[in-house]
């Protein structure tokens, strides 16, 4: 299985090798695939380590309505569906966000995430439905799915020039009652929605 970000993040080693003789090519393919697999794994690992930090940092630059956080002892950072974070997100467990203890949770059904403060939505066919469910709830939605903000997601992670950047749909956040720090806004590649 190939993650969608893989091609954009790293060019395939096979791309420029089409004119090589067959045997040589086969041999090279074998060798490089082994090497590429290792390299690709490492790159992916790095990418998600950064994204993990981003998720944590997003939570710090967004203000949730106070009444929604009151009485809670935890700040739930959730993933929905399949993601490539692996175990990395768990490193955030125990950190403090808005005076709450951060907990990482994994869900497969959108309706399970209603109580989360931040949901990272993995690759899903049901993206539209998920967003619809979470709309107007004080849940910060984040995803690296393409055109996520245009579909009503709040923060979309993307890779530009080998660097991870993000887009923000400020309307979606506002509708959900979330306030996004201007500092965060200033770092975004684009901020959509009426101001």
């Amino acid at each position: 299985m190939q993650p969608p970000g893989r091609n954009t993040l790293m060019r395939s080693p096979l791309a420029g090798a089409q004119c090589m003789p067959r045997l040589m090519l086969a041999l090279l393919l074998l060798l490089l695939s082994i090497a590429a697999t290792g390299t690709a794994d490492e790159a992916q690992h790095t990418e998600y380590r950064i994204k993990t930090a981003f998720l944590y940092n997003f939570s710090r630059f967004v203000v949730w309505p106070e009444e929604k956080l009151q009485g809670r002892s935890e700040f739930s950072l959730c993933t929905l569906g399949n993601t490539l974070f692996g175990e990395q997100l768990d490193t955030l467990t125990g950190k403090t966000v808005h005076s709450k203890t951060l907990v990482v949770k994994h869900f497969d059904k959108p309706e399970d995430t209603l109580d989360c403060q931040l949901v990272f939505i993995g690759q899903s066919d049901e993206l539209g439905e998920t967003l619809w469910i979470l709309k107007q709830l004080p849940v910060l939605t984040v995803s690296d799915a393409a055109a996520f903000t245009e579909k009503g997601g709040m923060i979309q992670l993307t890779v530009v020039d080998n660097k991870i950047r993000f887009r923000i749909n400020i309307d979606a956040a506002r509708t959900a009652g979330l306030t996004i720090s201007s500092k965060l806004l200033s770092l975004a590649i684009s901020v959509t929605g009426a101001r």
Binding site: A53, R60, R165, L187
Partner: peptide, 12 residues
């Protein structure tokens, strides 16, 4: 620069 640092945005 705190936000830029946190989000590794050297340009910012």
């Amino acid at each position: 620069s705190s936000a830029a640092l946190l989000f590794r945005d050297a340009r910012a």
